[in-house]
Design a protein around this nucleic acid. Sequence first.
DNA 1: TTGTACGCGTTATCAA
DNA 2: TTGATAACGCGTACAA
Lengths: 350, 350
Amino acid sequence: MVTIKEIAKRCNVSIATVSNIINGKPNVGRETREKVLKTIEELNYTPNYIAKNLKTRRSKTIGVVVEDITAFCAPDIVDGITKCCEEKGYHILLTNLRLYRKFGESYYENEKFFPMIQKEIKELIAKQVDGIVYVTTHERVLKCFPKELNVPAVMAYGYTRSPKYPSIVVDDRKGAAEVIRYLFSMGHRRIGIVSGPVRSLHTRERLLGVQDIFTEQGIPFEKKCVVEGDWRRGSGYRGTDSLLEQKVTAIFCMSDIMAGGVYDRLGELGLIPGKDISVAGFDDRELSTYYKPPLTTTALPLFEIGYTACEHAIRKIEGSDCGEVPEELLEIARSCSLTVRDSVKDIRIQ
Amino acid sequence: MVTIKEIAKRCNVSIATVSNIINGKPNVGRETREKVLKTIEELNYTPNYIAKNLKTRRSKTIGVVVEDITAFCAPDIVDGITKCCEEKGYHILLTNLRLYRKFGESYYENEKFFPMIQKEIKELIAKQVDGIVYVTTHERVLKCFPKELNVPAVMAYGYTRSPKYPSIVVDDRKGAAEVIRYLFSMGHRRIGIVSGPVRSLHTRERLLGVQDIFTEQGIPFEKKCVVEGDWRRGSGYRGTDSLLEQKVTAIFCMSDIMAGGVYDRLGELGLIPGKDISVAGFDDRELSTYYKPPLTTTALPLFEIGYTACEHAIRKIEGSDCGEVPEELLEIARSCSLTVRDSVKDIRIQ
DNA sequence: TTGTACGCGTTATCAA
DNA sequence: TTGATAACGCGTACAA
């Protein structure tokens, strides 16, 4: 490995001069600059970041902790983070907790992994990351950052509810409201809901969004039109019948996956989505375009969440104020975007 | 940040002793050891890896370059890499090239991004990574590693065809053969193929696999039963009709996505997959379980590819032989695994 | 305009 | 069993 020393020796200058040239400092002769630059090129010299960082106490590195990179929302969030890092000249030290693989489907109700997170964060600190972005795969409150964390940390997708760490989250309430408003605009009044688990923040916020529109429209919202699901396909399947009994004209599922289950059951009953009954989903996963008919759903602002989270972390690093986060920045919600496909029928009287 | 120096001072020992204790060296009194360990605990001291690495010239870090983390195969490969790193005590410096996002659908036929790769790899080297794993999102030959690379590098999913760098790839030939063998076992003899682009290595290998079975069964394979696709849904859709004209009883698509297109066209024609005609796919993407009926397909050994690639990199690092790779290790193929669902009909005469 | 010398937090080599 | 001290590669006062 060629070092700054070698460059200096070859050019008969001191290492200080070489260092100055590399870092674009003024006060260096044009002639020496050229000579040095040339030999740097020739020897294919690259400054050793490790040494540099040791000196500057800045690693220009963000530690990214992902609960499970194989979860559907993780790659897009990470994509947003990488975009931001690329722009600001940061590197990424990735920690994949593999929670889903290690603890199975319901790891997010499990707190066994908390010590593991602490350990991994400590590792990242030991590696001298300048900041941390934690990416959850289920939206929930998570107290995973140690009290004495000495670098800025931001939560992406989940909530911290801690004044020290901002959360960048989905605007679930508005997202669900938009879906329901669309359903209303197509003439639907009796709308069935397949929700997520009631203890989930997603679920609660979205339910609030649903009610917002019913209230706005002056129509009472009936509790019996809500069936509790668990985000999985089977729960959509199982919930369908009771919703049908309620004579709903449309079913809003809080995940595309559950909508898939609704499709399954509807198919068995010989009912065609978008024709005999309307269905809408949530998440806008690629697979929903393969449903027959393609599902009307709303996209999670995953990329944006990652980007914004990282941006906040870097802003705090560079402003180096690691204090409390002002109230208005504690939870930053990003909007979903509705995608209309063919699963919702227009039942207005012409 | 508390350093080794502080620990030493507090304990009235030299930093050398503290260092020895941390690194489990022998020849240190039990009493001093305990005292030091206790203050380390108290002050919550963590060794600075940066400084350590500067000295040891080992960063215990793998540079992972992913062409696009949002591509469907990337997360699982990265998952395999992280599993391996976790086991061997390595960290991951992640570089997401964002090729798909930057250059669109057909970036893999584009060489504009080569300088970018070189630059990113140089960055990783500057960050002192001990090795590099490059993750492609389309299987192809890629000469992206610079000649003078001074750390071990391994290609995951793509081919290097270079004696210096091993490739860990999908066993496409065997994978396709297995699908065709299954189709044969269900009585199919006239089999249509929706292939990938003919210049793709995937395509060629899989076509070879198809022929292997026809040859084995002593049945001539007809070229006109192959339609060239582009991996995308539309190409499956467009290819269906001409295959139907050939009176095929089954269609093997080289991607689940294209199989989706076939389903689309079949649906329009009122033909039911798994009943009127059989369909099989490739990749085993989650969405294929949402097709109606669920698609019989074969899974790519993504996780294993990532794991194996990383394992090789680390083995080379720790053996620190960075020379040529022995012939038998140049291309390591991992097997696919067939998943039978409901899209293939048994047409044997009972 | 350039060079010297020191320090960043470690590990490693000796000597005590 | 312990301690001084010299590296590691770089940035930066300060001196020249």
